[in-house]
Design a protein around this nucleic acid. Structure first.
Lengths: 226, 226
DNA sequence: TTTCTTTGTGTCAAATTAACACAAACAAAA
DNA sequence: TTTTGTTTGTGTTAATTTGACACAAAGAAA
């Protein structure tokens, strides 16, 4: 480590935007900090990166110790570097976002925070640090991604109805989607995944909403419609 | 900074994938390292983040000191965290990519490296660290982004012909594009940018290749076709 | 002025989307 | 078990978009 001795490194943290879907509402999990800075303010859950730890591991650690969750969909979002983003000093945050099904995890306040709570994405309070910016970027990413990749099933139970999926999409994208055309797109996509070939029918091909790729098929992706 | 005293932080670096377009070829700038680790191997240019420095500033510093460039298009790519990616110890790399016009900058070896050279993206040699992975991700990002956002002009002169732009797109995407339909899309897009309304004509609307948004207009974007 | 090259528009068939009628499947109630 | 309503999926059609290519206008070179 000689090579680094001349450097004083900024601290490295991960902040998590945890999305959950419940009662037709997309929500985000926030912690009420019980210590300075931003004591009693809502913030995203986060923690500092340990020397030997990967981002994945750190995310799991945050989810487990602070929120009691594991095995969730996770994706790296962006790294935030504003020099003044943390009043304690220089901290780079490599933000990630997670998609979970709130029913599976009873959210309980961990040791650090005095309160953990779901907030609908339309009613996010003032956040500490630059977490509002992180949240906004995460929501935009989710909205963009759901249109070409089947993230979003992680927000529902293993089995879900077409209506539930339809509502989820309308909710996340904030637009109305024709129920029947949506249904057709999902079924077409599922068919392609399972068989590798397009579904025939007079004109019933709607390959736009999802552009499933082969990787997904390899990953044994399953769209369960009850 | 008391709060951090318990932590030993991983080092933070930025690695740059600098794209240039020259003689109908998309290339990447590589440095031949003249010190361990990976002495005499090709790598992406990079440097460690100083305490008060933003990513932007660090990128500029790398471009200026190692490559003699400034004022280039720059975008954050992804953060790489494999614990063993640097044999010297734990180093997180927040990779960025840049688009430049090679004609504007005479590439000269800086102090650190003993050689700087353009490599066509189809002929990248074995790279040190995990830089092959970073390069691959950058190329994929560029290919994806160019299809809905007008990055890519930065690779050409201020004035360029339609043929040049057309070639650039074919080169980056690695596919053939009909010259005439391409031309129409570009001109339609330019028209929308300048006037805010669609270009009329019997069926000559091709709004797919670029989805220019208003932000671009605000940024005074100009597509100069000689 | 002629000839060649570059560039842009017209046209048309195929593919895709959006909107909505209708029918089958399912569930709840009687 | 029948009735009644709700959910879900397919059919159909018009409008939009794409892709392929003919052809013409504009420039550049000879």
């Amino acid at each position: 480590m000689k090579a680094f001795s001349a450097y004083k490194n900024p601290a490295l943290a991960v902040d998590l935007v945890v999305f959950g879907y419940h009662e037709k509402t997309l929500s985000v999990l926030l912690l009420n900090r019980n210590e300075e800075p931003f004591k009693d303010r809502w913030t995203l859950p986060g923690a500092f990166l340990q020397m030997e730890e990967s981002f994945q591991q750190l995310c799991s650690r945050i989810l487990q110790t602070k929120l009691g969750m594991d095995n969730v969909y996770l994706e790296q979002l962006y790294s935030f570097d504003a020099p003044d983003r943390d009043p304690r000093g220089r901290v780079i945050s490599v933000a990630h976002y997670a998609l979970i099904n709130p029913k599976k995890f009873a959210v309980a306040a961990g040791k650090m925070a005095n309160d953990v709570q779901w907030f609908p994405v339309k009613k996010i309070p003032a956040l500490g640090f630059d977490h509002k910016e992180i949240f906004t970027k995460a929501l935009q990413r989710l909205q963009a991604k759901i249109q070409y990749f089947p993230v979003g099933f992680q927000l529902l139970d293993e089995m879900f109805t077409m209506s539930e999926l339809h509502e989820l999409y309308e909710c996340i994208l904030g637009v109305e989607i024709d129920r029947r055309n949506f249904s057709r797109k999902i079924l077409d996509a599922e068919y392609v995944i399972n068989t590798g070939i397009k579904r025939e029918g007079s004109q019933n091909r709607r390959p736009e909403l999802f552009k499933f790729n082969k990787k997904l098929k390899q990953n044994n992706f399953q769209l369960n419609i009850s």
